[in-house]
Design a protein around this nucleic acid. Structure first.
Lengths: 195, 195
DNA sequence: TGATACAACAAACGATCGTTTGGTTTACGG
DNA sequence: CCGTAAACCAAACGATCGTTTGTTGTATCA
């Protein structure tokens, strides 16, 4: 619970640097293996100084996690709005998701790397944040013209699973891009499911 | 480096219990958050006693990881052999993979929960073990009759990603079973990809 | 410009981490 | 039944963990 400041924030506030460093460490090593000392050193501060901004390591993780949801949601919603056809909108959402996850990584990767059970006291908050984000995909899949009886929930879980897991094998060398990968994944489903 | 015993193992050897306890802790909490003390206590031993069987925590993880690959490979190969049609064989492989992952868990879950990068000194060994296992799926997808130009590599990565990620949302309540889920995932791909 | 509160430093706290070392028990082969 | 080695205990080692506490500097606003 950060106490509300009586005055506005100072211009030399290093909170953004703290969040960036924490996002990088959490994304690279996971929650438990990323130490507060690592994070502090990465942004030129002392370990104890982090506790001016956050009461506990868990709260720092929640802040990074929330920023990741914010960033991903904005990217996906922005991409979806540029398309009109349902399948094109879904593909745009997947492409934006993969680009955020695989290219300008860190914050988005924390959503994939850190599981709610890793942070027991904040598990509920993390689950709520993630569910909030995934609603965009639920909406896109709801609007798809599909054969009657198709399990849209299974379709969503399959697609999101494939997208998220790509973080663990994708390498930037080679000709495959996040966008091309999203195109392949969606097309593997689209042709067989055309209503 | 476990020294080769000069005599055969004793009947009160608790190595299996150590592996079981380690598998459970690694699967539940991940590598970093599972402590040697937790594992030792779970099988009624003292922390230092684990070092009679393994020279380091990393080696214990590698042993569990290898056992997980063994168990998954056996289950999937056994399931595949009971079918003849290519798509039925793939579905059987997915069902066996999901059953091992979601029901009689622990060892199989370690493959999904622990990333090679979590264990720097053993990352190469873990990658090799995982690649060894995934060859079963590569073979099944190679034998699929698919439209020309289909990217079988993307298909494999999509399917395995969806299967593995299910560990993070699947709950046993409700009517969905690992088998029914595998059926849905494969069918979502099959109908559109019939050669 | 002086008072205020933001933002960080400096230095430690106890707890827990992986691991080591030397001694003890006990099942097993001869 | 005895000697040996397998299997574990008992107790600690130094390192690192998240966190706390008291103090210091400095940007901001009246």
């Amino acid at each position: 619970m950060a106490a509300k400041p009586l005055r506005s924030a100072r211009s030399d506030n290093r909170l953004p640097a703290v969040l960036d460093a924490a996002a990088r460490r959490f994304a690279e090593r996971g929650y438990a293996a990323a130490s507060m000392r690592d994070i502090a050193e990465a942004c030129g501060m002392l370990p104890g100084s982090l506790y001016y901004h956050f009461a506990a390591k868990e709260d720092l993780l929640v802040a990074v996690y929330g920023a990741g949801v914010e960033q991903l949601s904005a990217a996906v919603r922005g991409a979806v709005e540029k398309e009109t056809a349902p399948w094109a909108r879904l593909e745009a959402a997947c492409a934006a998701h993969l680009e955020a996850l695989l290219e300008h990584g860190d914050y988005a990767q924390v959503l994939v790397r850190v599981l709610p059970v890793d942070v027991p006291n904040a598990a509920a908050r993390l689950k709520a944040l993630r569910a909030d984000y995934e609603r965009v995909f639920r909406d896109q899949i709801r609007d798809l013209p599909l054969p009657p009886g198709t399990d849209r929930s299974a379709l969503r879980l399959m697609l999101l699973g494939a997208l998220n897991w790509s973080r663990f094998w994708f390498v930037e060398k080679g000709r495959e891009t996040p966008r091309s990968l999203a195109r392949k994944f969606v097309h593997l489903l689209e042709e067989s499911l055309h209503a």
